[in-house]
Design a protein around this nucleic acid. Structure first.
Lengths: 334, 334
DNA sequence: TTGAAAGCGTTACCAC
DNA sequence: GTGGTAACGCTTTCAA
């Protein structure tokens, strides 16, 4: 159906090798025959067949992106950037969503392997020893993002979440808060399910370190039960004599928590302060604006893509690449 | 490096044809040799090479998704569904974002063609005759979504936006609104830039049809200038003696408009009603909740994918597939 | 400067 | 049931 180099070769009465030389700007070809071939290609509406090329060259010019989902809009923004940067280098993106299902993640990675992608950007949900071995066994350059895997087994791009949360605690203390609780998903529960909780742990650790550093004793980690139960328990134990705040794992948690508190008639920030993490777009629609920690998602995409391409060129490639962050104040604190 | 069927053939002292029969469950093979081969495959850690398969079979088991961007979170949700459904059928997704740049769209489609994708789901931004011809020339099954292209040139999945907006006007009138304006991007301006404005036009048409149908004369289409200028002009011309509402092209417009009006000290819904379209998630974070028109995005994804696969099986495939919608009330109307 | 042929990994057809 | 081989479209190497 479609025109091939063989068609061009016959049309021009040359060999396919010569056609290849013309088409790919290789040396060792007469300028006139080259022009003749290029014109014929145009005339016959030739388009290279990437499958053939891939097979012959052993490169697919494709990278796989394996991600939880697209609902937290941190991911779409990141993928948007990754796609753009990869395209600039002539690479295509296979998008695989795992929905935090370990089976889907492993299957997806196997398929990427079979399809011979040249590299993978992975938001890992697995974390076991066996899983890491499996990843190594693929022999494909992998850059991890968001969650870390093992001990520098794969290059990692992220934020120093521990330090950021520690800074957040200090920030709250500077504002006069002396009673600071931390709202997080059930970390140990998720680990029992075999999920990677690297980021979750880092952030929780940062909270605890921060509390210790500033000399506050009342570490309160709201971790078990539904969001409502956790906040209910919190409210029961509080008379708000001290200046109180809830530091949240991420903005979407912060938004939900604030909504719930407001419905219960608690005023933010007058009775309680709220602080999130990530600076997601939804914050713009919430009143009061929630204080948060911001980092550059486009920059994260760029670092990840640059890193992956470096890995694809050289053999060896490791290390942690941590981005800057800044604290953003908001009406949710006073 | 990796094990091939040839390796297995040598290991088992059979031909590659036999290995192929075993691996792909084809008939005409002795059960015992089959088992022997399967075990060897396992032992040698064989994984099929999709590039080789694609070349031989003439199918890549890949579909391309060409979309504006991922910022309006209608798209991520849709793509999430498309990815899941395609995966269930063993297909992979090439994701291409065009950022509403016509060049990027055309390039992306060319590349998908060279990579021999089996089908394309396209959110088109082009609309010219030449563009449609170009799409036909690719000889790839294409399903359009969001924007329509030509006159039934390609199957289309969407919502009957015209009817929905007409219904929205009726809905407002039933609520007692007699002064209804319509807020939209600059349609003719976008067309001059060569952009596809099918959906924009349908919705604006629905507004006008609705106004006529209910016998309201005051058609006010707020279309030119920045959002602020448009609303400023609107406010200048209004004394709010009549019960007034602004119907908006989409929710993100509605949110922005409401924010601006609120900042200007106008009360929603007391002084003016607001209504949007799409039921995006951000509506949950806005006070008051904005009335809107809702349709099922997962269903849209399913219809599109099913349709594409039908197109990929048969030769011929056209038609319009319109989804149901419902009007959702909200505190932005009284 | 050009041609011929092997090779990439798989499928499919035709003999045996 | 099985083996051999051409074919898919392209790249690359070796000879001429």
């Amino acid at each position: 159906m479609a025109t091939t180099i063989k068609d061009i070769a016959e049309y021009c009465r040359v060999s396919v090798g010569t056609v290849d030389r013309a088409l790919n700007g290789r040396t060792g070809i007469n300028e006139k025959t080259k022009q003749r071939i290029l014109e014929a290609a145009q005339l016959l509406n030739y388009h290279p067949n990437y499958i053939g090329q891939s097979l012959a060259r052993g490169k697919t010019m494709t990278i796989g992106v394996v991600c939880f989902d697209l609902y937290n809009n941190f991911f779409p923004e990141l993928i948007d950037n990754i796609e753009r940067l990869a395209k600039e280098r002539g690479y295509f993106i296979y998008l695989i969503l795992t929905h935090r299902d370990f089976r889907l993640e492993e299957d997806g990675l196997k398929y990427l392997h079979e399809r011979l992608v040249d590299g993978i950007i992975l938001f890992p949900i697995g974390f076991s020893k066996g899983y890491i071995e499996f990843l190594h066994s693929l022999h494909i350059p992998i850059v991890t993002i968001y969650n870390k895997l093992g001990e520098n087994d794969f290059p990692f791009v992220g934020v120093d979440d521990r330090q950021a949360m520690e800074d957040a605690v200090k920030y709250l203390v500077d504002k006069g808060y002396t009673d600071i609780a931390y709202l997080t998903p059930d970390i140990t529960g998720q680990e029992k399910e075999g999920l990677n909780t690297y980021t979750l742990r880092q952030r929780a650790q940062g909270y605890q370190d921060g509390m210790r550093r500033v000399g506050l004793k009342g570490i309160q980690t709201l971790e078990k039960g539904s969001m409502e139960e956790r906040l209910e328990r919190y409210l029961k134990e509080h008379d708000f004599r001290e200046k109180s705040a809830i530091l949240c794992l991420c903005d979407s948690y912060a938004i939900k928590a604030m909504k719930y508190l407001q419905q219960r008639g608690i005023r933010v920030p007058e009775q309680i302060g709220i602080m999130g993490y990530d600076d997601i777009e939804q914050l713009n629609y919430v009143v009061p604006r929630i204080a948060t920690i911001k980092y550059s998602v486009p920059r994260m995409g760029k670092v990840a893509v640059d890193l992956l391409f470096r890995c694809m060129e050289k053999e060896e490639c490791r290390g942690e690449y941590l981005l800057d962050y800044t604290i953003i104040d908001g009406g949710s604190l006073e």
